[in-house]
């Protein structure tokens, strides 16, 4: 096994790659992280930093959605869970006066608990019922939040969430990026370990999975718990960043957009949600001068994917990498490509 040979770096790589291809798998993600870390030093526009911060939080949400989807379950109320995290965190900071760090983590745990309760009720039923139940719950949660009077701010939303630190964009940028990296590491390990394999096994055939000793109910609840925790984290973090939240960001359409982030990025790849979120948020932003017309860009991306791209943008990337490898192997006269 490679980790014993390469010491700390190898151990780290071994922790991540279940297929032992070691450090090579880390190159691109590390490069991307370095790039992201450097950006605030180079980019001056606070607005651009703001967009990136938003993207970071939504990437966490999209990754958390994927964690559930790989088990074959479809949480059609996932954005509402983000709302639970946002409101729980926001209300804890605002009304209970808890320190923001505690509020955020507490909100994530709270969201996770709710997710577990719901998943538990549906764990022994077909995944279809979980999907339907999630849908209803999502809608109900939004309505309940709307009905919360002064506590939740009702339809106009909750404002006045106390700021964290010095509330500067650059600080928030690194905080959000840090949360993203931690969450991504945690979720990557989740998926690439045997846990992830078991979830994918359940998704392909729950009968076979059970017959080889995989406790379907346990794993389904686990997937939802993990997904709920991270989406709650994203929601609470985002709430503290923007200071004002409204239920219109956590409705059914918001859930559909989270799914779009995952699908457009490519559903067969861990990096899909990351790529998809960046694409679907950044590209329309680039065209923001179109103002009212900018949603056409988002729709355009969806149509582009639907009509022209079978494997999503992450799939396109894999294709490119495979081509490059094949080209390299040809160049060096090496018959066996990777």
């Amino acid at each position: 096994m490679t980790d014993s040979k390469n010491g700390a770096a190898g151990k780290l790589a071994g922790w991540f790659s279940s297929r032992n291809s070691g450090l090579s798998r880390c190159v691109i993600p590390v490069a991307a992280v370095v790039l992201l870390v450097v950006i605030p030093l180079v980019v001056e526009s606070l607005y651009n930093l703001h967009i990136l911060i938003m993207v970071f939080f939504y990437v966490i949400a999209a990754l958390s959605l994927r964690a559930i989807v790989i088990s074959g379950q479809f949480p059609l109320g996932h954005a509402a869970y983000m709302g639970i995290g946002a409101y729980a965190g926001g209300m804890a900071s605002k009304w209970l006066g808890l320190p923001p760090g505690l509020s955020i983590v507490g909100a994530a745990v709270f969201t996770m608990i709710i997710g577990i309760l719901v998943a538990y009720s549906f764990a022994r039923l077909r995944a279809l019922y979980y999907a339907m139940g999630s849908l209803f719950l999502g809608v109900a949660i939004v309505q309940i939040l709307n009905a919360g009077g002064t506590w939740t701010g009702g339809y106009s939303g909750l404002s006045g969430i106390p700021p964290m630190f010095d509330n500067s964009k650059v600080t928030w940028y690194y905080v959000a990026l840090g949360l993203l990296i931690l969450s991504a590491l945690a979720l990557y390990r989740f998926e690439s370990s045997r846990i992830g394999t078991n979830l994918k096994a359940i998704s392909q055939s729950h009968l076979v999975a059970e017959s080889v000793g995989i406790d379907e109910a346990k794993y389904r609840i686990l997937a939802v718990a993990v997904g709920s925790f991270f989406v709650g984290l994203a929601g609470a973090g985002y709430a503290h960043y923007v200071g004002t939240i409204a239920t219109s960001n956590y409705n059914f359409m918001a859930t559909m957009w989270l799914f779009m982030y995952v699908l457009v990025g490519g559903i067969n790849n861990f990096y899909g949600p990351i790529v998809g979120t960046f694409i679907l948020i950044l590209i329309p932003e680039y065209f923001r001068s179109l103002k009212t017309y900018s949603p056409f860009i988002s729709a355009g991306i969806l149509f582009l994917f639907v009509y022209l791209m079978p494997n999503g943008f992450a799939g396109l990337f894999e294709l490119a990498v495979a081509r490059i490898k094949g080209w390299r192997a040809g160049r060096t006269g090496n018959a066996a490509a990777d």
Partner: peptide, 9 residues
């Protein structure tokens, strides 16, 4: 996805 796209449009 197409449905969402058309909705947005």
């Amino acid at each position: 996805m197409v449905g969402v796209g058309i909705n947005v449009v």
